[in-house]
Design a protein around this nucleic acid. Structure first.
Lengths: 338, 338
DNA sequence: GTTAGCACTCAAAACCGTTGACTGCTAAAT
DNA sequence: ATTTAGCAGTCAACGGTTTTGAGTGCTAAC
């Protein structure tokens, strides 16, 4: 059964109001602030009907109404009117993205930061490890007797955080040789191909087998590890009234500071453009009464990462969605045009 | 005026008890738990004297006593008996340090994490940018038309987070040349020498002036930037009863999540072995009623970084100091022996 | 279908009195 | 000169009561 237009309007106003004020909304406040032409009694009967249908509830008999999860779901899918960011906000995004150099790690961190600042909620991010990405360059850089830095370039990324162990007695010239061979072997291959166990090691590399295996190991490790998880603005949760008691805060923090949990939270939404999950609702990783809005960004045909905003169910979805969309556009344009 | 031995003993017991229980300590609990041979009335008069001298205070007339900052200061300098870590704790440290590769960034992060886990307080760290460190190797690695990764090796560190802009039209062979020249010029020099403005650029580099200047810029930037600030276990603060209300938590978080504030906090203690700051006491950056225990670690004659533990004034100083000392020993031995 | 009016509900705040964990003081004991 | 037992005094914390007021549901009239 479809809701009448007036019911929808009232529900929308109520959700908007509740998101803004965080207190149960009364029939009178609706007629005073928005629908000044009808009386509170009329609104009251509409509210009673909406409650009957499961969209609203009262914390106690004599209080105003609060939207249920069901109401939020309808709200985000139909009722909410998207907001445009202010020019100040757009300028802020642009400024932050323009004067930074294209180092993927920093970009991810900065993007998460921008999202958190603009939405005023905690933001999360994971970088996608796209197995299909093609290796464009690869090199070992020795920094001590038995240690080398492995630098890899793909279309979207500069990977420079893998360190491998190499034989102590490997001469510098040999390392140069190994580097040339590494290039011959890996450049043009995708991560998927490299991590395929049936990979045949060319005879030419016989002398550098140890190095080779270490490199492959590092690559496999990189692809599977859940390390690249970013968290920004975790303190923002403190400014929302539903997090007035430490129990809640602690529960929230215990999820958000655990890398594996954040990873699970976000990785489930990989590939989806913008996704809104309301309330715990079966996603056990999400803290109670929390909502999670995620977006996956792509550039040059591959996924760059998944970003998320986490906060109370009473979240400003309008704002969050517009921030995620706008930031996404900036990010994608910057990464794609290179 | 020196305190009598009995006064000292009572003060020590009281501080220990208060650190453990977080509730005002009564005269009776002291005689029951520790000094069973004397009566509570006796202790009471001693406590009254200690209060007179400014070591104790009562939140209200009929409550037990709480140590003042002055008492904590005496406690850490004279009264506290250092603790040994349990073998489990030592094993835990050893395990974490042994199976990690010597990448300085990770080591700093891990060290901070270990400190936070073992002390159960929030830990902070900054890496020292020692101007006297000698550059042992330096290389540019191109990752796109006009971008290159600058990798630098010193005795203690592998720096791999500087990205510079290079001329688009620079041929790969020219970059190789530039690399050779960079090596000739920079290897053996200290950061101090490099950042000296009077640096004379050799004529041999004429063709690569842009690259050269970019590298010097990056080095200067690296030395001055306050980026490398690490924060671990920020959620730990929530488990201490003095942080039961959000106002406090928010204040704490607002300091600890701001990189520049953390930097100021720690950089003031550079070079000092182990330092304890109790209460806000003029250090405006420290949140109210917080204490900060810091330690600077060195290896191969240069400072590696400064680590700190921040928490309520009622901090388990015994534990914190031993953890900092022990972790420091492990860290220094690992970094020095290479 | 809408509205005014009224009785009803209930959380939150304000207001107690009671309790009990402490202390400080004093006078006797060591 | 200390130490101790005993006792009166203080005050936060707890629990129960009352008051208040914001809000509803219902009903009868428009």
């Amino acid at each position: 059964m479809e809701l009448s237009n007036r019911k929808k309007k009232i529900l929308q106003l109520l959700v908007d109001d509740y998101i803004e004020t965080a207190t149960p909304v009364s029939s009178r406040s609706i007629t005073e602030k928005y629908l000044t032409t009808i009386s509170s009694a009329t609104v009251r009967s509409e509210l009673a009907a909406l409650e009957e249908l499961g969209y609203l509830y009262q914390p106690h008999t004599s209080s105003g109404r609060i939207p249920s999860k069901q109401a939020y779901k309808l709200y985000v899918s139909e009722l909410m009117e998207k907001e445009n960011l202010t020019t100040e906000q757009l300028d802020y995004i642009e400024k932050l993205f323009l004067d930074q150099i294209n180092d993927i790690e920093n970009i991810v961190k900065n993007t998460a930061k921008v999202i958190s600042e603009l939405t005023e909620y905690t933001s999360l991010a994971i970088t996608a490890h796209d197995m299909g990405e093609v290796i464009r360059n690869i090199k070992l850089f020795r920094f001590k007797d038995d240690g080398a830095l492995l630098v890899i370039v793909t279309d979207n990324k500069l990977l420079k955080d893998n360190v491998i162990t190499i034989p102590k007695d490997l001469a510098d010239e040999s390392l140069e040789n190994a580097n040339t061979l590494l290039g011959q072997f890996f450049i043009g291959k995708t991560f998927r191909e490299v991590c395929d166990n049936n990979l045949v090691i060319d005879e030419a590399f016989a002398g550098y087998k140890a190095v080779f295996l270490a490199v492959i190991d590092a690559l496999k490790n990189y692809v599977t590890k859940t390390e690249e998880v970013v968290l920004e603005g975790e303190e923002k949760i403190l400014s929302h009234p539903e997090y007035a008691d430490i129990g809640r805060i602690r529960q929230f923090m215990s999820v958000v500071t655990k890398k594996d949990k954040v990873f699970n939270l976000l990785s489930g939404n990989k590939g989806v453009k913008v996704n809104i999950k309301i309330g715990a609702d079966g996603y056990e990783e999400i803290p109670e009464d929390c909502s999670l809005v995620t977006a996956t960004y792509t550039a040059n045909g591959t996924e760059i990462g998944t970003y998320g905003v986490i906060g109370p169910t009473r979240m400003d979805y309008k704002k969050v969605v517009s921030v995620l969309e706008n930031v996404g556009q900036f990010l994608e344009s910057i990464l794609t045009k290179r």
